[in-house]
Simulated assay, not measured.
Amino acid sequence: MSKIKSTSTRYMVLSELFRSKGAIIGFSIVILVSILSVYAVIVYPPSVVTRIWSDPEYWRDKPVLALPEWYSSLFGLNLPPNIVLDTRKQDSRILKYTVSLNEYTEHEITFTFDYDYDAFPSEINAYVYAKFKKNPLITITFIRPDGREINLWSGTITQNESFIILSNSPIAKKNVQEYLFNTFGEYVSDPTTEVVLFAVEKRGMDKPNTAEVLKSAGKSYKIKIRGTFFEKDSSLDVKLIIYGKIWGLLGTDDRRRDLLIPLMWGAPIALSFGISLSVITSLLHMFLGS
C-alpha cells in the first residue's frame, strides 16, 4: 500500500511539474548547464584552460574581436571568415617550386585565393618556417584581380620560425603609400594596408568607410613569396593567414581568445553555485522548521 502511495505521489509531483511552463524551462536549463559542465571539464580541463588562456601563441591564428559565425547568416551579411593557406598541407591553391644555382637557392610560393565578401579583412600575417644558416632575403608581392601588383614586403629573416606582420608593418605601409602616390599623385599619411590591398582602385580607397571591396568575380587574388637563400641546403614553408571578421560560435575577444571557453567554464561554476544555494536553503528550512 505504501509503495502504491509513494508511486502515486511521485507521479503527481511530475505531472504538476510538467504542467508549469516555468518549471519545464527551469528544468531544461539545469539539464543543459549540467551537460555543458561535463563537456567543459572533459574538453577543456582546468590545467589546459590555465595554460592556453594566457598564451598568445595559442590564439595567434584567430581574428581579433571577431563576431560569431552565425551573425553573418542571421543578418544576411557576407562577412569574411579566416582564409588560411599553408604550404605544409596539400592545397590546390598553392604553387611551390625551388631552383638551385651554384651556392644560391630560390624558393617561390604562390598563394591563389578568391575574395567575394562585402567587408575587408581585419589583418594579413605570414608565418615563415625556413631552414638556413645564412640569413635569407624574403620578398612578398601582392597581385590584385585587376592586375595591379604591390611590392608589399621585403627584408631578411634571422630565425627559422619568423612572424611577418603585413597589416601594420612599417615596410608594408610605406609600400602601400608609394602605390597610392604613384596612382593618384597624393601622399596618404596613414593608409589601412589590408583595405588598400582589397579595395577598388579609386580615391578614398585607403579608408574602410570610403573604400569599396574589390571582389574576385572570377579573377583571383595572388600573393607571391620569394626566398633567396645563400646556400643549397635550405627550405621554405609559409603559413599565410588573411584574417576575417567572423569566427566560432561566440566570436573572439581583443586577444583573439575563443569566447566559448569562458562561457563553458561559467556553466560548472553557475551549477555548483546553484546547487550549493539550494542545499543551504533546504538546510535552513529544515532547521527553522524544526
Rank of each mutant, 00 (worst) to 15 (best):
L74F: 08
E194F: 08
Y221R: 01
V43L: 04
P145L: 11
P46G: 00
W153L: 00
P268D: 09
G155P: 03
L79I: 04
T183S: 01
I4S: 14
S282Y: 14
Y104E: 03
S235R: 02
Y97E: 11
T141C: 06
E106Q: 11
V195Y: 05
K202F: 11
K215T: 12
Y58A: 11
D233F: 05
G274T: 11
Y129E: 14
L152W: 09
L137H: 08
L101P: 11
K245P: 08
S189W: 01
K207S: 13
Y58K: 01
L152G: 10
E108C: 00
T158L: 03
L283F: 15
S28W: 13
V213G: 02
V195L: 06
L259W: 02
G22D: 12
A211N: 07
A23L: 15
S6F: 01
S290C: 14
I261F: 15
G147F: 15
D118W: 02
Y104S: 05
I143A: 11
L14H: 14
G251A: 01
A130R: 05
S220L: 11
P262W: 01
Y127P: 07
Y58I: 10
K5T: 15
S189L: 13
K219C: 08
L17D: 12
N82G: 06
A130H: 07
I164T: 06
P63E: 13
I52L: 08
R257Y: 13
Y11D: 00
Y127R: 12
P268L: 03
A267L: 05
W59I: 01
T210V: 10
D91M: 09
E161Q: 03
R255E: 12
A119P: 00
M205V: 02
M205D: 07
E106M: 04
L259D: 06
V99Y: 06
W265S: 02
S162D: 09
A126M: 10
P81F: 01
K245T: 02
I143S: 09
E16A: 15
W265H: 10
R60A: 00
K134I: 10
F273P: 08
A211Y: 08
G218M: 02
D237G: 10
V200D: 03
K232S: 15
N78H: 11
I42E: 05
V48D: 13
L240I: 05
L271M: 06
F18Q: 12
V64S: 07
P45Q: 05
L284Q: 12
K219S: 15
I31H: 12
T87I: 08
R255K: 14
Y243N: 05
R10K: 14
V49I: 10
Q159E: 04
Y44D: 12
L271E: 05
I31Y: 10
I261G: 13
D254F: 01
W53D: 03
S47L: 10
S54A: 12
L260G: 09
S220R: 14
Q177D: 03
S169M: 09
V196F: 07
P262H: 13
K232H: 09
V200W: 08
S235H: 06
P170S: 05
K207V: 07
M264S: 07
A40M: 06
F163Q: 14
I83L: 14
V128M: 07
A270C: 03
I52N: 11
L236V: 02
R88F: 06
I225G: 12
V30W: 12
G155Y: 07
I124C: 04
S216P: 04
V176C: 02
